[in-house]
Design a protein around this nucleic acid. Structure first.
Lengths: 104, 104
DNA sequence: CGGATCGTTAACCATTGGGTTAACCGTAGC
DNA sequence: GCTACGGTTAACCCAATGGTTAACGATCCG
């Protein structure tokens, strides 16, 4: 999978960036303030988010404006919801199953 | 974050295992057939899923029965849905924003 | 022009990740 | 008892991650 949103979201800093961008577009400085890592580290995280198609970048003068690219993230959200719907049908079944096994 | 479901889901094999377990509990062999990697590799993926609290294991004789542990995955699904709800309010705004910047 | 600002690239380093093979453990079954 | 089976552990390998500092590029502004 070339666009792997789960990989993109597997680091807390990148999730933090996504959270901020979910409020609306922002510059790199705005979207990444306060994470306590160096600028090159931030730059790498942004590269991952951009490569996976989670974030889009528009260069405006010397600042880079970032915005969320909903499609790829929606894919991930859809996958999660689908799995949740499937396991949701099993709630009670699982309990029974475990009890059955414990008593074997 | 000690229980990081996104890390757990960041590998396609682990997502595959989750998909199978969303249909219902299964043994290791059942849940992980056909991934084309060795058994130790599988074992490591299962360890990750177990450590992150995504999967529970009950040893029955010489087989290990796996089942999905819904809580941690639900956390992730909730996070995704929350972000989607937030960025959803921005759809048109983003378009305007990009156009505005392109014309600068 | 010259300095400050926003952000990236380069080079490097330590750790983690994901895979392998070989060996092992415990249980099942003949 | 012994072999087959389900699965893990150990030891190892290489590539990818995530961080650093130092330097750079480009733009803005006095």
């Amino acid at each position: 999978m070339v666009n792997d949103p789960f990989r993109a979201l597997s680091h807390p800093i990148r999730r933090g960036i996504v959270e901020r961008l979910a409020e609306g577009p922002a510059t790199v400085g705005e979207a990444t303030a306060g994470f306590g890592v160096s600028k090159p580290a931030i730059s790498k995280h942004l590269k991952v988010l951009e490569e996976t198609g989670v974030v889009a970048r528009v260069v405006v003068g010397r600042t880079h404006r970032l915005s969320l690219e909903p499609d790829v993230l929606s894919e991930a959200a859809d996958w999660m919801d689908l799995q949740r719907a499937r396991w949701g049908r099993l709630f009670d079944v699982v309990d029974d199953y475990l009890k059955e096994n414990e008593s074997r």
